[in-house]
Structures are given as structure tokens and as C-alpha cells.
Design a binder for these strands. Structure first.
Length: 221
DNA sequence: GCAAAGATTTGCT
DNA sequence: GCAAATCTTTGCC
């Protein structure tokens, strides 16, 4: 699937599982599992919204490699974002994981969100942040690309990891076959106004409209 | 070498 | 609804 055209691969990732093994920044060994509910496809050199538009660099190098590999980058100097590399090795493309819906390990995700917030704002009250996160529904713990990374302890050190290897601490797994496949709708991508036409208008964002974990304002979904 | 902008999130007005 | 926080990467001198 990931070796094929990126838009179809992105659509096909909706409903797949993102799995994180117990290892992480602290000793709590809870396994985290979540359903992918929102993604965006970023195409090759010609896509003015894609990091690949600069050609291969130190940052985006893995996009030019084989499919199924993690591409993690830092955005706005603050948040890590997880991508899955798509298409064959000579064609750069990646799928941004924008939101996932927790199925297991939600408390571990809450702890990771707290640790991430404390690292970002050392002067703020950890207790206030802990209470804020405790009040958050599980479906909102990873609603947004920066929050997916925070909830799963994903940072740039995981870039290059094989997400299709069952031995990887972070990996993709096929959805539960007994579960009905989700409805998938498309929209333009978010936060790429700089790309200009026609790229801003292309419907390369895919999501499950029934999921409460999808990011963005409800009326813009 | 330096200036500018960015695949975001949060808090305040 | 708008602006701040924060730092890497890119683009131009």
C-alpha cells in the first residue's frame, strides 16, 4: 500500500493502528494503541507544500528513501510531527499523521502530554497542567499532529525508524478486521497557504468524519 | 553569515 | 479572533 501513489496510501491509512511499546521517557510500561483518523498526503518535488520541494536535505532525506519509514521533523521550533514515507525510493512523498483516536494506554498518553508540556513551559505549574489534561476526553489527547507526537513520545530521534517492522518500538499495524472500515472524506490540507494555487486547493487531507479525534473546527471538516 | 518563515498549539482579548 | 512562543532550515548577501 505505502509503495503506491501517496494519496491512495494516505486514504488507506485511515483506520490503521499506531502502536507504541512501553519504553519511553519514564519507567511506566503501558502500551499505547490508537486508530489513525486523520492524515495528509505530501507529494514530490513539484508539491509546493511538501518539504521535498527543496530536493534532498539533511532534514527531509528519509522522504527520498524506501516507503514505510518514519519521517519526524520539528515544526515552528516547538512540536514534532510524525510522517510515514510513501512511494518508491526514488520518489519523495510522505503522509502526515494529523490525529489518532486512543484505544489503549490513554493514561500513558496523558502522562506523556504532561511531560511534553512541562518541557515546553518549565515555569508553568505542572499541577495545573495535570488537571487540565485529566479533564480532557481520551479522544482529544492526540487531536492534532503536534499532539500525536507528544502523546506517543515521538521526536526526531525516531526519524528513519521502520514503522512496518513488528519489532520497532513505534509501528503501524493493520486494523481489526472485525471492525467495519471507516467512511473516509477529503478536504484541502491545513496550514499550507504559503504553497499557493493549485496546491492549497487540492483535497489531499483524509479523515474519518465520525471520529471525535479529528482536528479542526467542526464546520470546516 | 544573517534574516525570515514555518505541515502548530495555546492563551488572552 | 489574534498573537506569542521557539528554533531549525532555507534563501539570499
Amino acid at each position: 500500500l505505502l509503495a503506491g501513489p501517496c494519496p491512495a496510501a494516505a486514504r488507506g491509512l485511515i483506520g490503521a493502528l499506531l502502536v507504541r511499546d512501553g519504553e519511553g521517557r519514564d519507567a511506566n510500561g503501558q502500551r499505547r494503541v490508537a486508530r489513525i483518523v486523520e492524515v495528509e498526503a505530501y507529494l514530490g518535488i513539484a508539491d509546493r507544500a511538501s518539504h521535498a520541494r527543496f530536493g534532498p536535505t539533511d532534514r527531509n532525506g528519509v522522504m527520498f528513501g524506501p516507503p514505510g519509514i518514519a519521517y519526524v521533523y520539528l515544526v515552528y521550533g516547538m512540536y514534532d510531527c510524525l510522517n510515514v514515507v510513501a512511494e518508491p525510493a526514488d520518489r519523495p512523498a510522505a503522509i502526515l499523521i494529523r490525529a489518532v483516536e486512543p484505544l489503549a494506554g490513554a493514561e500513558r498518553m496523558r502522562a506523556a502530554r504532561l511531560a511534553s508540556a512541562v518541557r515546553r513551559r518549565p515555569t508553568a505549574s505542572p499541577e495545573a497542567e495535570r488537571e487540565r489534561l485529566a479533564a480532557l476526553p481520551a479522544a482529544h489527547l492526540a487531536r492534532g499532529p503536534g499532539l500525536v507526537a507528544a502523546a506517543f513520545d515521538i521526536d526526531r530521534s525516531l526519524s528513519g525508524l521502520d514503522l512496518c517492522d513488528p519489532a520497532s518500538p513505534l509501528r503501524l499495524e493493520a486494523p481489526d478486521p472485525s471492525r467495519p472500515s471507516p467512511r473516509v472524506v477529503s478536504s484541502p490540507r491545513i496550514g499550507i497557504d504559503y504553497a499557493g494555487a493549485p496546491w492549497t486547493g487540492r483535497r489531499l487531507r483524509f479523515f474519518d468524519p465520525s471520529s471525535p479525534a479529528v482536528s479542526g473546527r467542526p464546520w470546516k471538516r
